[in-house]
Every structure is written in C-alpha cells, then in structure tokens.
C-alpha cells in the first residue's frame, strides 16, 4: 500500500494523507462514533469487543487498549478523532502532548508558555 511518491519529511510529524486515511479508517471510524454518549459508555463496558465491532487490526487494538497515542498515530489515527477517545479518559491536549513528547504535563505546559516569550 502507498502512493509511492516521495513525501516531505517533517521530523516528529505525520501528514494525515491518503495512505494514513486508508490505513487508519477503522480506528478513526471507531473514534468518530464517540460523538455519542451511548457509544462512549459501550466502549467503556467492553473495550476489546467495541474495537472488534469496528474491525480494528491488532496494531490498532493494542494501541487503543494501552492508550499509547504515538502508536495510534502510527496505526493511522488522526488527531481530531483520537481526541474523542482521549476525552473518554478525561485526557486534555496537555496530557496527550506530554505523553507523546515524553515529559510531564507541567513540563509540557512550561514549554508552551516559553514559546510565548521567545
């Protein structure tokens, strides 16, 4: 799978293009379903069964069950849809940012504040 085209490389960044949209479709579709409170509750009742219902592959399922954002992104997840999954666990964007960059939430927030002083 893949377009075969040379892509621009931006370190630490994945452009959510056609290759990723194809790869991540089931995962993103599951996350899109979390707009509904009933679906969020159903997921919490049986996470694995809910993943299976949406046809997630093993990589996607492992990433979701371990709540590892970088793994979900590598499996084709899109940030906007994944944020709906994060919301179920009360994770905000600083929690998600800290996890992805390997720092504490306070350190991540300090980095954002520092960006305003430059």
């Amino acid at each position: 799978m893949g377009s075969g085209k040379q892509k621009r490389v931006i370190p630490g960044t994945t452009l959510f293009d056609g290759d990723m949209a194809r790869k991540g479709y089931a995962l993103n579709k599951m996350c899109f379903s979390f707009n509904s409170a009933d679906n969020r509750a159903a997921f919490l009742t049986d996470k694995e069964g809910y993943c299976d219902k949406y046809g997630l592959n093993a990589e996607q399922k492992a990433a979701v069950l371990s709540l590892q954002v970088l793994d979900m992104l590598a499996a084709g997840g899109n940030a906007y849809y994944l944020a709906k999954l994060g919301g179920i666990f009360g994770l905000d964007m600083q929690d998600i940012g800290a996890q992805q960059t390997g720092v504490t939430k306070d350190e991540f927030k300090a980095k954002l504040v520092a960006a305003g002083r430059r």
Binding site: T13, V69, Q100, K111
Partner: peptide
C-alpha cells in the same frame, strides 16, 4: 499549533 507526534506543542511566534 500541533497536537500530534513527537513535535506536539510546536509553536512559531515569529
């Protein structure tokens, strides 16, 4: 702003 990846938190004031 950038929400995802190892570059999450990227901001470019300039």
């Amino acid at each position: 702003h950038q929400l995802e990846g190892q570059r999450a938190g990227f901001i470019n004031k300039e």
